[in-house]
Amino acid sequence: MTVYALETSGLTKQFAGFTAVSDVGLRVRRHTIHGLIGPNGAGKSTCFNLLTKFLAPTRGTILYEGADISRAGPAEVARMGLARSFQISAVFPHLTALENVRAALQRRRGESFDFWRSDRILKRYDADARALMAEVGLTGWEETLAGEMPYGRKRALELATTLALAPKMLLLDEPLAGLGQEDVGRIAALIKRAAEGRTVLMVEHNLNVVASLCDVITVLTRGKILAEGDYAAVSANPAVQQAYLGEMAEPAHV
C-alpha cells in the first residue's frame, strides 16, 4: 500500500496540436483534502477529466490506490470507489431528490438490470437515502423534483448522491462555483465533513475556501505543475504570485 490514494506520472493530454496537460506528476496523499488551482486555461478541467476517466490521456499513467487505471473507463473507476462531482450541478432533474440518491444506492447494490421486478423493491433504499439526505441538511426535500430545487440545494443533493456510492475518494469539480455567500460556507462545511476518512481532490476557484479547506495545494499553469505545498507556502511562492496575482486580485471568482 502506498501513502498516495492517487498518483500520476507523465500525464499528458494533447488536443489537435495543443497540449492542455503536460507531463503532470500529481500525488494525492490518502485522507487529505488536496486542492488543484490555477488561472483560467491552466488545464485544471482537462486534468480533472483525465483523473475521472472522462477523457483518455495521450500519455502517462494514473494509479488509484496502487492500481493502474490509465486505461479504465469512467463507470469502472466509479465502481472502484473513485467518485466525481460536476462543475455544473449534476442531478437527474425529473427524478425526486430521494430518487436521485436512490439511483446511486441502487447501482451499488446491484439488481439494476432486473426489468421483470416492480420498482417497489427500490423502497428498501429509502431509509438509507433519507439518512444521506439528512447528513447534507436536505430533510424535507425528499419528494421535490431535483430540477426544481434551488442551486445550493442541488449541490448538496449531488454530494449526498455521490456519498451514497460510499466512495474512498472524492473528485470535486469546482464544488462552490455559482453559489451564494451563505451556501458557500454550508457546502464547504459539508465537504469537510465528507472528507473524514476519505481522500478529496478538488478543483476550485474560491481561494478563501481553498485556503481553509485544503491540506495540500497544487498550482497548475499552462498545463504544468508550477508549485505544490500548503497554502502559506504556495501563496508565498514568487512564481505563483507572478502567474496568479492578476487572478487573485479579481474578486470575480468569489
Binding site: 475521472t52 472522462f54 469512467p74 463507470a75 469502472e76 466509479a78 465502481r79 467518485a83 466525481r84 462531482s85 460536476f86 449534476a90 442531478v91 437527474f92 432533474p93 425529473h94 427524478l95 430518487e99 436512490r102 439511483a103 446511486a104 441502487q106 447501482r107 451499488r108 439494476s112 438490470f113 420498482d119 427500490l122 448522491t161 455521490t162 456510492l165
Partner: peptide, 18 residues
C-alpha cells in the same frame, strides 16, 4: 429506473458507476 437516470443525465449516471 436506471434507464430513466441514464436518459436524464448520462454523464452523471456514468459517474455513479452505471
Amino acid at each position: 429506473a436506471a434507464l430513466k437516470a441514464i436518459r436524464e443525465n448520462e454523464s452523471r449516471a456514468i459517474s455513479l458507476g452505471y
